[in-house]
Design a protein around this nucleic acid. Structure first.
Lengths: 228, 228
DNA sequence: TATAAAATGAGAGTAAAACTATTAATATTG
DNA sequence: CAATATTAATAGTTTTACTCTCATTTTATA
């Protein structure tokens, strides 16, 4: 992707942060170095104290940007999914044919992530590693329902909806477009996770295999079973 | 399922526990009440102290059975997947026809969980709620690879392998049997999770829809795309 | 350029969680 | 019955996840 859009900024629900990290130098360092640290040591071992040390700042300063580290993870995930949505729209918008559109969408959502020069302070590859490794951790808390009500997961939901609509446009009769969309999105992460940690549980050994596997799922022709 | 097998016991890798909870009354109460508490308040809010209070015992006594609460969660997950495997084998063993066998397997793996009278001290419905809500939390730690090496996830891996083999028996030419098996298993949990917390991201509104959705995925006929 | 306001840094302090260790009481078993 | 293992009660340690206060620096604006 070329450096087409210099003045682009990913917009995140303000309820997720205390102070917008994109509004200051310290904020950007928090995000930048936070991504590095979490991708290196994992989210559980990550603390604001350690991050403070790394960026030569203070724990309490970070708390002025994010209420706690869980919110920080939600922020990073939101950023990632917003970025995915932007790439999805950019790459499919001009395609009229539903099948080709859906194929391109699948490609965007399942291929190996590469750095995007439009957002220099975010290392998308490291961020992808976090999203793959921590998977659905942002959702897996007792507070999901409350946080969902607060709109913390809007971006992800919009992406699933958008992708679901593409499936529906291609297969109007298919009644499980949303389920298929959420399954494909989650399966894509999951297969990468398995490739990294449980290679005996997946056949996807390279990036193109991931896409092919998912494409076959999406474009397969439903055969009614004896039960239906 | 009838009460056929009175003397059945789920065997778990001893490395997961310090002392086998199935070997004593206290151990069984830990498992029984632990399942209740985690399914009620969620894993993050759960502590050994609270569990101790509930079962009228002491925090330090629980530590004699499980090293920490993460291992306890791994134990519960292992139990769940071992139980799933046992049901899978029981229900499919006598079926010779690969298609019918696979259909039955899908049913066992995707239908709503019901209590199993063979294991009276485990509430399978509550345990299923934990597995759905905490999803892949046992895997999502910086120590996955180490724990995997220790064999903590053997049961789950065996289940995926077994299910993958059933897919392979039915579609010998299909090159993604393992990926499909892991995807279906994970998608089944995920769709139940969405149904409970993000109903706008799934079309599965009842138990039969879950099975139908997954059955269509598995039995669909692959259509080669323009890329292949 | 002076001055107010905002942002950051440094440090101490608190509460809860996650253990660990010790000793006493109780149960089990040989 | 004696020895042995198991469990209960309690206190203590370390770490994490914050919170609070105040001093210092930076920035904005008159």
């Amino acid at each position: 992707m070329q450096d087409l859009l210099h003045n682009l900024r990913i917009v995140i629900n303000p309820k997720i942060y205390v102070k917008d990290p994109q509004s200051s130098d310290l904020g950007m360092r928090i995000v930048e170095q936070g991504i590095q640290q979490i991708s290196e040591i994992g989210f559980d071992r990550f603390t604001f104290r350690k991050l403070g040390e790394q960026i030569g700042s203070n724990e309490s300063s970070i708390y002025r940007y994010f209420e706690n580290k869980h919110k920080f993870l939600i922020y990073l995930n939101s950023w990632y999914w917003a970025w995915m949505e932007y790439r999805l729209v950019l790459m499919t918008n001009s395609i009229a044919d539903p099948r080709k559109k859906l194929e391109k969408a699948l490609e965007v959502l399942s291929q190996k992530v590469e750095a995007d020069p439009n957002f220099s302070y975010v290392d998308e590859v490291a961020l992808n590693k976090i999203v793959v490794n921590e998977h659905f951790k942002p959702f897996l808390t007792a507070e999901v329902d409350e946080e969902n009500k607060q709109g913390y997961f809007e971006i992800y939901k919009r992406l699933v909806g958008r992708f679901g609509q593409m499936i529906r446009d291609y297969r109007p009769q298919y009644p499980y477009a949303l389920s298929l969309a959420s399954t494909v999105l989650s399966a894509s992460l999951h297969q990468y996770f398995l490739q990294a940690h449980f290679p005996t549980l997946t056949d996807c050994k390279d990036a193109s295999a991931h896409t092919t596997f998912l494409r076959q799922l999406v474009f397969a022709k439903v055969i009614p079973s004896a039960h239906e």
